[in-house]
Each structure stands twice: as C-alpha cells, then as structure tokens.
Measured scan of single mutants.
Amino acid sequence: MTTFKLIINGKTLKGEITIEAVDAAEKEKIFKQYANDNGIDGEWTYDDATKTFTVTE
C-alpha cells in the first residue's frame, strides 16, 4: 500500500486528506468522488514524486 494525499483548494472547502491505496488510479477515483460529493469542481493535478493530488477551484 502507498500513502496518497489530496490537497483541496476550493472556494468553500480547503484542507488535506491522506489515505492509503494500492495505486494512484484507485486513489484518483476515490478522491474525485469525494470532491464531487462535496461540490468541488476544479482543475486536478498529480505529483508522482510526492504522491499528491491537488484540486483547485
């Protein structure tokens, strides 16, 4: 398992979430669903070196 981080830079929601997953593709799906469930629609980036997804509205 690898630890992945999501950084949220939303208009109404900001924060960080850290979760373990098998791979980045699995985690991306979970993070995007979390963002969608919380009304966050923005630009996504991924840094493989730090295993960090960022979504910015």
Rank of each mutant, 00 (worst) to 15 (best):
F4C: 15
G15T: 15
D37P: 02
F53R: 00
I8V: 08
V55A: 02
Y46C: 04
F31S: 00
T52A: 02
T18P: 03
V22G: 07
F53I: 04
K11M: 11
I7M: 03
T18Y: 14
K14A: 10
G42M: 06
N36D: 13
M1Y: 13
A25W: 13
E16S: 10
K5Y: 15
Y34Q: 00
I19H: 02
I17S: 01
D47Q: 00
T50I: 03
A24Y: 11
K29I: 10
F31T: 01
K29C: 13
Q33A: 10
G15P: 03
D37N: 04
E43L: 10
E43I: 13
V22E: 10
Q33G: 04
G39E: 03
E20L: 14
T52F: 04
F4E: 06
I40D: 02
N9Y: 12
G42V: 10
D23F: 07
T45S: 13
I19M: 06
T54K: 04
V55Y: 10
K27I: 15
I7A: 01
N9D: 05
G15F: 15
G10I: 14
N9I: 14
E57R: 10
T50P: 00
K5E: 07
N36W: 14
I17D: 00
N38F: 15
F4T: 06
D37E: 12
V55D: 02
W44F: 05
I7T: 02
A35L: 15
E20Y: 14
I19E: 02
F53D: 02
A35V: 08
V55P: 01
K27G: 15
W44R: 00
A24L: 12
D48W: 06
W44I: 04
N36P: 02
M1C: 15
F53P: 01
F31V: 13
T2K: 05
T45F: 08
N36T: 11
N38L: 15
F53M: 06
K14H: 12
I8Y: 07
D48I: 07
D41P: 05
K51M: 07
K32D: 05
D41G: 07
N9E: 04
N9L: 13
K51C: 12
I8D: 00
N9V: 12
Y34S: 01
T12Q: 08
T45G: 03
G42K: 03
D23Q: 04
D47T: 01
T45D: 04
Y34E: 00
I40E: 02
D41L: 14
I19C: 15
F4V: 13
F53Y: 07
I8T: 00
Y46R: 00
I8N: 00
N9W: 13
N36Q: 14
D47A: 01
G10K: 04
D37L: 10
Y46K: 01
Q33L: 04
T18V: 10
T56M: 05
T54E: 03
E57Y: 14
A25P: 10
K29W: 10
T50Y: 02
N9G: 03
A21G: 14
G10Y: 12
I7K: 04
E57C: 15
E57K: 04
K14I: 13
K11Y: 08
A21N: 11
I40Y: 06
E43N: 07
T52S: 03
F4L: 08
T50H: 03
F4N: 06
T56N: 07
N38M: 14
I8F: 11
E20N: 10
E26S: 10
T18E: 06
A21K: 03
I30S: 02
G10R: 02
A24T: 13
E20C: 14
A35C: 13
K11R: 11
I40Q: 01
Y34C: 13
T12V: 11
F53W: 07
K27L: 15
F31C: 10
A25Y: 08
Y46T: 01
M1K: 13
N38G: 04
E16Q: 09
D47M: 02
T45Y: 08
K29V: 08
V55F: 13
E43R: 05
K11A: 07
L13V: 12
E16N: 05
I7H: 02
V22Y: 11
T2V: 12
F53T: 11
